[in-house]
Nucleic acid binder design. Structure first.
Length: 127
DNA sequence: TATGAGCGT
């Protein structure tokens, strides 16, 4: 009985770590940017709420134009929360900003290439 | 130059 509750609690915490629902990250997803906004102007627009460690704006590969959204990294999560509450809905360069917490993007996630060098022999020897 | 919700190497 107690063990079942413990298992449920452990599973709930695991789900909470993997689900991006109310996860207050220190990274903000900033959308609604004007296409003339670059990372510099975005940084000093957000650096008045805390220490901005990194700013990245996503640009389109072939047009070179900004895709209208970017990411603002804060060194502290409370600063990110305050900046979100302060800047969400407000306008930068005439465009209203849509700010939410960034969902955790892990680099190298879809790279699943297990060892199959020893299986190549079995595939090649079927002549 | 036309565009306007969204989650990035």
């Amino acid at each position: 009985m107690r063990k079942a509750l413990m298992l449920i609690a452990r599973r709930a915490s695991t789900v909470a770590q993997n689900s991006p629902s109310p996860v207050t990250n220190s990274k903000l997803f900033v959308a609604g940017l004007s296409w003339s906004v670059d990372e510099k102007s975005l940084k000093d627009a957000f650096s008045s709420f805390g220490e901005v460690s990194e700013v990245k704006i996503i640009y389109d590969k072939d047009s070179g134009r900004s895709r209208g959204f970017g990411f603002v990294h804060y060194s502290d999560e409370e600063e990110a929360k305050r900046a979100k509450d302060a800047m969400d809905g407000k306008a930068l360069l005439g465009r209203p900003l849509r700010i939410s917490f960034a969902l955790e993007r892990v680099r190298g996630a879809p790279v699943v290439v297990p060892r199959l060098s020893h299986m190549e022999d079995a595939f090649n020897s079927d002549s």
